[in-house]
């Protein structure tokens, strides 16, 4: 059994409420465990937020394509955008999660959370677009 969802949203932060709702509905229909639904929604939010902030286009001026495929064994997430080349897993700064409160930098946590919460995360540049693929296993 598998089900999928494809969405095209403008690169605006406000557009993601609809994405979250659609993905949560898919997760309910596919009977995802709470940690799977959480990880997928968070991964989409963090990645899409990165595209809006670092993609190089004015907010609302370009589109982000989101595809979520749910099978018995995994939830697979794909995020594509036509912004400037940006590999979040290599180009985003790694936060220092050991630093004391006074020295802790604000931000940089999003990609770190995605790396840990998802089982696979990879990036490729293809046809002038950024492609991020992430997998959360269901067992």
């Amino acid at each position: 059994m598998s089900a999928s969802l494809t969405l095209r949203v403008p690169n605006r932060i406000e557009a993601f409420a609809g994405v979250t709702e659609a993905v949560e509905t898919l997760g309910r229909e596919e009977d995802w465990a709470p940690d799977v639904a959480y990880a997928v929604v968070l991964a989409l939010e963090e990645l899409a937020t990165n595209v809006v902030r670092h993609g190089g286009s004015e907010e609302g001026a370009s589109e982000i394509e989101i595809k979520v495929v749910s099978t018995d064994t995994e939830a697979r997430v794909e995020v594509r955008d036509g912004g400037k080349p940006f590999d979040p897993f290599r180009d985003a700064p790694e936060p220092d999660t050991e630093a004391v409160l006074e020295d802790r930098k604000i931000g940089g946590l999003g990609v770190h959370l995605v790396r840990v919460l998802m089982d696979e995360a990879c990036y490729r540049r293809e046809g002038g677009r950024n492609h991020v693929t992430m997998v959360k296993r269901r067992s």
């Binding site: 940690d35 990880a39 999660t97 630093a99 004391v100 770190h112 919460l117």
Partner: peptide, 17 residues
């Protein structure tokens, strides 16, 4: 609880708060 607790731990916030 649950995933919210994991997110705080992965971020290392349990070491500073």
């Amino acid at each position: 609880s649950g995933p919210v607790q994991s997110v705080f731990e992965i971020s290392g916030f349990n070491r500073i708060i």
